[in-house]
Design a protein around this nucleic acid. Structure first.
Lengths: 209, 209, 209, 209
DNA sequence: TATGAATGAGACTTCATTCAT
DNA sequence: AATGAATGAAGTCTCATTCAT
C-alpha cells in the first residue's frame, strides 16, 4: 500500500517512458491510425488523460516514439574507420543487417508512415523522413570514400540503391519470416553495391576520356 | 420491364465501380484503418448503406480493391519469350519500372497492408500476399531460365533479391519524388541481378567441384 | 411493441424536430457552451450519433435552433397599416411586449450569443445578428413613416434607441421577474420613442432654419 | 528570512492578480462555461494547480472576477450633489456612458451571467445581481430627488426604465461597434428619463386630485 | 437496386479538481 | 506559496454496421 502511494507520486520521467514504451509497441504493430490512445492507456496503466499531460496530442506522441526509437537505434551504430573500403562496406552492411533483425518493429512503423499520404501530414512522418535523409547522406559519404571519382549524380544513385536494397530486404524478411536468410542476402547486397560503385566509376571514366 | 431490370443491373455495376474507384483512391493514400466507409461514401457520392449492398463489410471492400487493382495490373504484363536470357531480364526489368511508375497507388496500399501486424488479419492482406507470392514464383522461373545450374536456395535468394530491389526502389521513388530517376535505377538493378546470378552460379560450381 | 418498431422506423422530420426542441430548451437556458450534445441526446431520446445525422456539428445544430425559432417568431408578427402613426407605434409596441413575454427563452439565447466574443464565431451568432439587423431596418422604416423629415442619422438613432429599450426591458424582466410590469414599461417606452421622434424632428428643423 | 516570507506574500498577491487579469479577459469574452481553468492557466502563465491555491474552485474564481471588477468600477464613480436635478441627471448619464465605453468587458460578463439559467446557480451570478440591485436603489433615490411627489411604483418604474436603457444601449454598442454613437444616445436617454419623470409626476398629480 | 435514418462503441481531447512535494 | 503529475468524468465527433422501406 505504501508502495501504491509511492507509485502514485509524481514521477514524470518514468511515466513518460511507460507511455512511450506502450505506444512504440502498438504503433509498430498497427501503424498510426491503428494506435488508439485508449489502447496505449490500457497497455501502460495510466489513464488516457495522463497521456495528455506528457504529450500534446496523438501526433506528438507518435512523433516522440519515432524520435526516441531512432535516437537509440542510431546511437548503437559504430562507423568503421580502418581497413580497405571494401572491408568497411562489408562491416557496415553486416551492422545494418543485424540492426534490421534486432529492432524491426519501429522500422516497420517508419516505413508505414513513409508510405502514407494524408491531407495533413503527421509530424511523426516528417521526423522519420528526416532520420532517413541523414542516413542517406552517410551512405553517400561512404560511397564517395570508396569511389572518389564518382560525380554527384552517380553518388546519389549509389546511395539510393544501397538504401533501397536495405528497405526491400527488410520487407522481404517481414513477409517471408524464417524462410528468408537476411544476413546472406545483405552479404549479397553489399557485394552488389561495391560492384555497382566500380561499374559506375568505370563508365564515368569512359565518358571523361 | 426487362429494360428496367437490365438498366438497373447496369447501374449496379456502375455503382460498384464508383465505390471501388473511391475506395482505391482513399485506401492507397491512407491504408486500411484510414479508409472509412463514410469517406468512401462522400467521395463516390453514394450513401454508406449502398456500399453495404455491394460489399459485405469494410474488409470485403478493401479486398475487392486489391483484387481488381492487381487483376488490371497483371493483365498489362507480357512475358518476353525470345532473345537471350539477358535481354529477357532487361525487358522484364523495364516493364516493372514502367508499371511501378504508372500505378503506384495500389502498390503503396499493398505494401502498407503487408507491413501491418494486427490481431485479426484482414482478408485484403492475405490477398496481396498471394499475388506477391505468384510474382515471386515467376521471378524464380526466370532466374532458373537464365542460370539453370543454380540450386533451389540460390534461386530463391535471387528471386527474393530481385523483388526486394523492386520494393525498395518503389519506396525510394515514393519518398524521393522527382529527384529519383526510377528507370535508371531499375536499369542498374537489372544488371546487378544478372551479375548476382552469374556470381551465384560460379560459387555453386566451385562448391560442386 | 408494434409501436416501438414503428417509432424506430425512418421518420427524419419528426426526429429532427425532436432534436431541435430539446436543443432549443437547453440552449436558451444555458447558452452555447452549456448546451452539450449528450444533454440534448438525453432530453430528446435519440442517441448522440443520431444528432449528427441531422446536423453537421454542434454549431450547425444551434444555428438551426436560432433559425427555426426566429422564423416562427417573426411569422407571428402583423404590421399595422391603418390609424395615426401614433396609434401604429402603440400597436407595434404592444406586440413586441407580448412577444417578449411569450417566448423569452430563445431571445435570451440570442442575447447570450450576441454578447459572447470568441475566437471562432459560431454561425448561430451570425444568424441571430442578421435577424436583429432586419428588425432594426423595420424599426427605421416605421420611424421614417412617423417623422418623414428626419435625416438618416436621426432615423438610425431612433431605431437604435427603440431597440435598445426593448432589449433592456427584456433583461429587466428576466432579472426582476414578477416585480417588473413589462406592459406598463413598454407603454412608457413607446411614448418615449414618439416624443424622441418629435424632439429630433424639431431640432432638425431648427438646424435647417 | 522575514524578507523571503514578505517577498513570497508579495508574489502571492501578484500571482493572484495575474490570475484574475487572465480570468477577467477570458470570462468576459466567453462567459462562465467558456472559461476553463486550463485556458486561464495558459493565459496567466501559472499552472492550473496554482489557481486552486488562490481560489477554492472555478465558481470562486469567477465570483472574484466580478467582485474585483465592480469594486474598481464603482470606485470610479462620483455622485454629483449640486446643481439642478436636471443637471445632476445629465452629469450621471454622462458618467454612465463613459463607464460603459471604458470597461465593457465585465459588464458583458455580468449580463451573460444574468441571462443564464442553470440548475445550480453560480455564486458569480448572485454577486452580479447584488451589485446591480444596489445601482437600482441609487437610481431610485436620484429619481425621488428629482420628483419627490412620485409614489413608490412610479419610482421603481423610472429606475427600471433608466437602467434598461443603459443595458440596451450597451448591447447596441457591443453589437454595432463604431457605428453607434454612445454618448449621443445616452444624452438622448437622459433627457427621455427626465421627461418620463415629469410625465409620471403629472399623472400622479392628476390621479390625486 | 438502393437509401434515409438510426445506433452503440469508441475515437481524440478537455474538463475541473486533487494531492504529494 | 506553489507546482508537476495524475485522474475520472465528460466533451465533440466518427466509426462500422443495420434495418425498414
Amino acid at each position: 500500500m505504501a508502495d501504491t502511494s509511492r507509485r502514485r507520486r509524481a514521477n514524470g520521467e518514468a511515466s513518460r517512458a511507460k507511455i512511450l514504451d506502450a505506444a512504440t509497441e502498438i504503433a509498430s504493430e498497427r501503424g498510426y491510425e491503428g494506435t488508439s490512445i485508449n489502447l496505449v492507456s490500457k497497455r501502460c496503466g495510466l489513464p488516457a488523460s495522463s497521456i495528455y499531460w506528457h504529450f500534446a496530442d496523438k501526433d506528438d506522441l507518435i512523433a516522440a516514439v519515432i524520435e526516441r526509437s531512432f535516437g537509440r537505434w542510431l546511437s548503437a551504430w559504430s562507423v568503421p574507420d580502418d581497413g580497405t573500403p571494401r572491408d568497411r562496406v562489408a562491416e557496415m552492411t553486416m551492422q545494418v543487417a543485424k540492426a534490421l533483425l534486432e529492432s524491426p518493429d519501429f522500422l516497420r512503423l517508419g516505413l508505414m508512415l513513409a508510405l502514407e499520404r494524408r491531407p495533413v501530414e503527421p509530424r511523426a512522418r516528417e521526423m522519420y523522413l528526416q532520420v532517413r535523409a541523414q542516413a542517406q547522406i552517410q551512405l553517400r559519404e561512404a560511397a564517395m570514400d570508396m569511389s572518389p571519382d564518382l560525380d554527384a549524380a552517380a553518388l546519389d544513385q549509389l546511395a539510393t540503391y544501397a538504401m533501397a536494397g536495405a528497405d526491400g530486404l527488410f520487407i522481404a524478411k517481414e513477409i517471408g519470416g524464417d524462410s528468408v536468410d537476411l544476413p546472406a542476402l545483405f552479404d549479397l547486397h553489399g557485394r552488389m553495391v561495391i560492384d555497382a560503385a566500380l561499374r559506375l566509376a568505370e563508365s564515368t571514366r569512359d565518358e571523361d576520356s
